[in-house]
Design a protein around this nucleic acid. Structure first.
Lengths: 202, 202
DNA sequence: CTAATTATATAATGACCGTTATATAAAAGA
DNA sequence: TCTTTTATATAACGGTCATTATATAATTAG
């Protein structure tokens, strides 16, 4: 499906790579703060190529959101799913979030959806629905981790997986917010163990 | 101190009122999204008056943040402090936040600091430090509510007031995020009682 | 080869951006 | 009254914004 020959002059840049670069610019500067010049410079293509390949700025932004959402490389969740002990897993989850929130490369901090896309709800149609879909997806994935413990028998069958998953999600927003405001990783990690303990307490 | 006669032509608009209107515009559209024309229109003054009274756009933004921070009219905190029963107080606290997050007037949703000012950290100098100061203030105030319960004897002396206050603060960010994304109040209130119970469990 | 199709490069478009000259009006001090 | 001081009103400034005309290059179809 990918190497079918298309008529016309072939593209001289990689679509996904360029989109990824655009996402980084949005991440760093926000939707309004990112100018077309910023974007084309980072993407390495002139403006007309951007418009013909991605549509206008709003469509490009939506495509960047989709690229981010589809990426399964969210380190915090991977950490949560990898670690066997549930309490340690939660700690690793938040530690990864704290790292994202405080020292992510290229000035982009936090979560692209949480700290960048959110701002543009109401300004760019389609952002809100995408974020809501992502929230549902994430919570399901987090809840599944608790369900695994229920299956293992380390958590009771009555354990409210989805509620605790939602709570983890909301706490995450707090870390991202603090990180954005400039609070350091060391300070953010204080009290982490107690939080993990609370989250698995029935 | 306020009715000293100053020389020169007196101002024809109310300083705080105009600043408040500016804040609303920033709240709704963000720092970059709010143009000087938007601001002057909402403030009811021409551009030169804006510049002479508030400085440039960045200074106006910082003054708006200060106005918001100094305002003691934060309904959620008032609700928390007013209600006597601690668990009910927490529920009222979050209910007020949910209302702010979902149906605040004039398009502005959430918390001015959390969902607007945050975006401009790194773009406008002085925003980060102001937000951090506000975080500390808020947490101290929230913790004080728990301390009151300790004094009353309804919570043990060992109760970790500050940690739980920080947790409430972070959960708040989750509500604001969801509200911004368009999640409704009804859905946000699900599980609220359990959260309140957890927050006061030692 | 020629025609059709698509991407590129260059540069221009009008609109709006934040900001500021300029001139005038309204107050206090002398 | 006349000067000084500050605020107002009007309009303009250069710069940048998102977007697109125009012309050219590279590919496939026939």
């Amino acid at each position: 499906m990918s190497d079918i020959k298309k008529i016309g002059r072939p593209r001289s840049f990689d679509y996904e790579e360029a989109l990824s670069q655009a996402m980084n610019v949005f991440w760093e500067k926000g939707f309004n703060g990112a100018s077309i010049r910023d974007l084309t410079k980072a993407m390495g293509i002139p403006a007309p190529s951007l418009y013909s390949a991605f549509g206008d700025k709003q469509e490009l932004f939506l495509k960047a959101i989709d690229l981010y959402s589809d990426g399964d490389n969210c380190e915090p969740i991977v950490a949560l799913e990898t670690e066997e002990d549930i309490e340690t897993a939660i700690i690793r989850f938040f530690e990864a979030i704290i790292q994202y929130a405080t020292e992510h490369e290229s000035g982009a901090k936090g979560c692209f959806l949480a700290s960048c896309a959110t701002t543009s709800v109401g300004q760019v149609e389609g952002v809100g629905s995408r974020i809501r879909a992502s929230i549902v997806d994430t919570e399901i994935r987090l809840a599944a981790r608790f369900d695994r413990e229920i299956a293992k028998g380390t958590l009771p069958a009555s354990f409210p997986s989805l509620e605790r998953a939602a709570m983890m999600f909301d706490l995450r927003q707090g870390y991202i917010f603090r990180g954005r405001a400039g609070v350091g990783a060391k300070e953010l990690k204080r009290g982490l163990e107690e939080r993990a303990r609370m989250l698995v307490t029935s």
